[in-house]
Simulated scan of single mutants.
Amino acid sequence: MPQPFVFRTIELDGQTLRTAVRPGKPHLTPLLIFNGIGANLELVFPFVQALDPDLEVIAFDVPGVGGSSTPSRPYRFPGLAKLAARMLDYLDFGQVNAIGVSWGGALAQQFAHDYPERCKKLVLAATSAGAVMVPGKPKVLWRMASPRRYIQPSYGVRIAPDIYGGAFRRDAGLAMAHASKVRSGGKMGYYWQLFAGLGWTSIHWLHKIRQPTLVLAGDDDPIIPLINMRLLAWRIPNAELHVIDDGHLFLITRAEAVAPIIMKFLQEEKQRAVMHPQPAFGMRGS
């Protein structure tokens, strides 16, 4: 059985961060999760439960979200990546694997780029290269620009099929279950997250990401059209792309199917080629 999460609230540079760690076994590199915009850490629990119970998992609420304090000034992705590295120091973690979802995928790219020695492997789910992305439909982007779905759960349930696509179009209960786990950090925290990504792009340094990278995309994602994930997989040198038959939140709705793909990627080691000596002349064919 998986271990329960250990919750801690820590303070770094005057910023209060709510963290959760699911203990694991030392033979697996811990997995650090960068969550989507406005999303508190509880929203990824269904995905975590589908992962190998031996895998240690680190989740946290970014500033202004969930149980973390809202900063008085806006921040950018490089500053958040630095904060994540400091959080790992505080929690006594060295090298980790990182997974980033949607907005958190941009932060994961920044973390892998700025702290390559801390990030062994990278998983990017339903995300993009930022400002140069091929955008979703204007109606969807307009709804994403507001924190209303997190502050008013009934509104979030109503628009879920349009913004998340996939299974949310077919199962109304998914939206209800998702909304029940939401813990809003307020409007300002959401706007700070939007500001962090304003004008940001990784397109000019994606080729410098050397970590083995798994790119996961939904084929019915209204927020991040599939072409954006193909672009990431093309620009990152050591990347592989998997397309999931679902929408934006496939990590949650297809957790049982996606988790084994991620575990296989995290556990495989590139083996060196073994040079076998030529057999003696008289042994050939035997």
Rank of each mutant, 00 (worst) to 15 (best):
A50N: 02
L28Q: 04
I10M: 05
P222I: 07
W103H: 05
Y150Q: 05
I244L: 08
P225I: 06
H27K: 13
H178T: 10
M144L: 14
M263G: 04
L122P: 02
P30T: 12
L88S: 02
M229I: 07
A112I: 11
M263P: 00
L226H: 06
P2D: 00
L216I: 11
I236H: 05
L216Y: 03
G130I: 05
R22N: 04
G282S: 14
G14T: 01
Y191C: 00
P277I: 08
P222K: 08
N238L: 01
V182H: 01
C119W: 10
F34H: 09
A175Y: 02
Y115P: 00
G199E: 09
I37M: 08
F77A: 02
A255F: 02
V134T: 15
R8G: 01
M188K: 13
A85D: 07
Y155R: 03
A280R: 09
V6G: 00
W192D: 00
A81F: 10
A59G: 07
L198D: 07
P147I: 13
R76L: 13
D219E: 11
G64C: 09
D89N: 11
G94P: 00
A50L: 03
A98G: 06
L28G: 02
A259I: 02
L206P: 01
P71H: 01
L31W: 11
M263V: 12
A112T: 09
Y75N: 05
F60E: 04
K121S: 09
A273K: 14
